[in-house]
Design a protein around this nucleic acid. Sequence first.
DNA 1: TTGCATTCCTAACGTTTGTTAGTTACATTC
DNA 2: GAATGTAACTAACAAACGTTAGGAATGCAA
Lengths: 196, 196
Amino acid sequence: MGRIKTENNSTRKEIIVEKAANLFKEKGFKAASMRDLAELVGVEAASLYNHIKSKSELLHVICLDVANRFTNKIDEIEAEEIPAKEKIEILLRFHIREMLNHYEDVIVSDREWKHLSEPYLSNFRHQRKTYRKRFAAIIEEGIKKKEMKKIDASTAVLIMLHAVSGIESFHRSKQKISGKELEENMVTILINGLAK
Amino acid sequence: MGRIKTENNSTRKEIIVEKAANLFKEKGFKAASMRDLAELVGVEAASLYNHIKSKSELLHVICLDVANRFTNKIDEIEAEEIPAKEKIEILLRFHIREMLNHYEDVIVSDREWKHLSEPYLSNFRHQRKTYRKRFAAIIEEGIKKKEMKKIDASTAVLIMLHAVSGIESFHRSKQKISGKELEENMVTILINGLAK
DNA sequence: TTGCATTCCTAACGTTTGTTAGTTACATTC
DNA sequence: GAATGTAACTAACAAACGTTAGGAATGCAA
């Protein structure tokens, strides 16, 4: 069998991780076997272990990467001096775009993180919890400054994060509307509501 | 080992299905083993097969049950002669309550249906698709009658369904707010929006 | 062309998996 | 109390799993 093709100055490990995200998204982490992955990469299962340490390493690379992207973004947003309402919209749009662009990693991270092994599991849990708290804090700031309705901030976070994860179905559908339209629709509904 | 206790005139099979939903929710369908389930039930793994045909039967019983509950509800709502906006609110509240009351089945159905085997997989897919279309049709009716904003109906469905599934996190948290409060918050945000 | 490191292969390992066969214990009915 | 069906057990199966060992092929530098 041929070697793994390395284009665009990406390492073989990166290629394997990419394919793994694809596979995990499709079948779920537990249901995806290393032999499945090997076939996708174009190599025998055992050969993968020249590039990675274990199956669980693949998952934790994916999850950590996604978690860091969101943490970095909220770092950036918190630093800006703009109204809370704008911060929320920016963050929401970031979530939507992440889901539109590299949704495979995001979905896997969202749905399969429970299968992380320690200490990555605890780390991830903590990072996730912290992120949500910071998100909620921004909303609470908006409520305090009368920019938004008096609602439970953590419920609002819950709704937004999970609403965005619904974009997966959008990917599977025949994409009647464009990504840009989807983004505008989601922002409108979540910020301004469904009712007229 | 003792027998499976059958209280409340429920069959042993029903007890197994209930525990299975619990286990599948916790570990995921693939990661949950029949030996795990047996331990939860208080019996040896092989003994389960006196009551069920297979592991996959457990999943399809759970998924079919959930799917039917929602289909029945939308049948009922479509028949009523009330404004579309009200229909949507009723349906949304039904989703929230299902998630609050027997959320284990709903989560498993939502998250693990991909592991159904044929022909149940195709059936489920179809039922799910049809449900969403009917939901979207109600929203479109509301848009036509100027009860709601001009937004993409299927995006709105996406948001609502997935937002509701976020209630799982609520269950895991220390439940700072009550179920009733959560419901009101969710309805407010989704129908009227976050912004003031 | 030789030498060396990388990358792949085949073969196999020890577990865990869902499930079946065959048997024993319990509970209910006559 | 004997008979009968239900529900549990033990033992074991074949298949699939993640992973390792050891050797062959490849690509690169000298």
